[in-house]
Design a protein around this nucleic acid. Structure first.
Lengths: 248, 248
DNA sequence: CGGACTGTTGATCGGTATCAATGCTCGTGG
DNA sequence: CCACGAGCATTGATACCGATCAACAGTCCG
């Protein structure tokens, strides 16, 4: 019997669901999500997924790849707000507030599950546990931004970089994107600069320092943590409690 | 007939509801909120409302007063994440994630409406429009933190301070806490330092600069904006669209 | 092979931190 | 009513972190 949907990954057999980071959905939730998903979108590295001020009719979940959220001043200076990995919702602010004040760009070739955002109200109405899961994701996102804000306000360049590397590693690891304390880093140093609020020149110098201290090894798009303990101390890293999270 | 509740402000006659910033609730929502509210809490200036890592059974809405959310590094350096004003939810992260990674402290004598956070699930189950409103508030909070992150990463001290003053003024104004471009500022310069990520000494000097440029007048807990146009230009201020927001 | 982009290094500049002293305000108690 | 101390704000001198400017090296791709 032929399938009547146009995309490859069915929610029921979604590879992400097998990972222990994601809590299982019950039958009702899964049925709803399956109905809610209306397509799949694959974009190239560098493509804009959502544009500040622009209202697309879609809400997404990242199925595969890296993305990042960013926002710029009128003079063009860009701040990276956060990075997106598989399982992350993209466009929730837009769906809820009907307004988006940041841009989302793909870092790698990225595949997204597509939902119709005008259906979001029916999620709240018909499937409260799924609605709760969405709110959960929104709160978690805010928690991450809170942590970055603390970083920019209170850590110096070296501690900030150390923190960011630990953070990205741990997030990558949770979705199977890291092995042996090493993960694929599809960023340029300019991305890091814009996330850390320092210039590319200083980013290069700061990375060099971490190298010289033998704490990391960054080579050819691959970042490896060589001495986690010391790196954590440098970064004042508080490992967040790893909560199992819902996957929509 | 005597009232059988112990607190003064009934949701139906809540003074905040009369303000045009808040969208009216329908009968069902209002009835639910009224049941949901179980008390009122008044705390002195300086009191801790929520403590990082601590799980109180409560969720709050600010009824009157100023508060602030903050978070510190292991070495004690503190970052102010955002400020709270009437109508703001306090403890939503705790209620949803069952975990709170920041502290909330009262800046002034503050009165809060108290809700039981274990009832939050019933909100999602029984009153989807109220649940939606909560998610709306969470998204809005994230939007504000995003904007601060951009500020810390990309603005210099003068622009950062200018932005913060405009931001606080506009938020105060929305709840009737500002008149004639002037608002009561229950902060010390240390609060500003910790919000801006600069030292108290430099904060003092930066405030002085804004004074000398005749853009603001900060005297005796009162901050007045003297030349909004120039201040906005200095701050690269994009006035956010003022959305009417739900009040829970 | 050439060009665009990214990263590296050196020299110098400037914004913010740090250290230290003084002043101001206000609440408290003698 | 004044004296005192605590906390907050101001000012000056100096140090340092990170920005800026500039040149060059490495890598990738057409």
């Amino acid at each position: 019997m032929p399938e009547n949907t146009s995309f490859k990954t069915k929610c029921g057999s979604c590879p992400l669901r097998k990972m222990k980071t994601f809590r299982p959905l019950d039958e009702k939730e899964l049925g709803f999500v399956s109905k809610f998903k209306t397509g799949e979108l694959t974009v190239d590295a560098g493509a804009t997924i959502l544009l500040e001020g622009n209202k697309t009719p879609h809400l997404y979940t990242i199925l595969e790849g890296w993305a990042f959220r960013h926002k710029s001043l009128a003079n063009g200076q860009r701040q990276v707000l956060n990075f997106g990995l598989p399982g992350d919702l993209v466009g929730l602010q837009l769906a809820i507030l009907d307004d988006i004040q940041h841009t989302v760009t793909a870092l790698t070739k990225t595949t997204l599950c597509v939902f119709q955002r005008d259906k979001i109200w029916s999620v709240f109405k018909e499937n409260p546990s799924l609605a709760y899961a969405m709110t959960w994701m929104a709160s978690r996102e805010e928690q991450m931004v809170d942590a970055h804000l603390l970083s920019l306000g209170q850590r110096n360049a070296l501690a900030r970089l150390s923190y960011l590397i630990l953070y990205l590693h741990d997030r990558a690891e949770a979705v199977g994107y890291a092995t042996n304390h090493s993960f694929n880093a599809p960023f340029t140093q300019a991305h890091f600069s814009d996330a850390l609020g320092i210039t590319p020149v200083h980013t290069s110098r700061t990375i060099k320092k971490l190298h010289e201290k033998n704490l990391i090894n960054w080579k050819k798009d691959q970042i490896q943590i060589l001495n986690r303990e010391k790196l954590e101390k440098l970064a004042y890293y508080d490992q967040d409690i790893k909560l199992q999270r819902p996957l929509i």
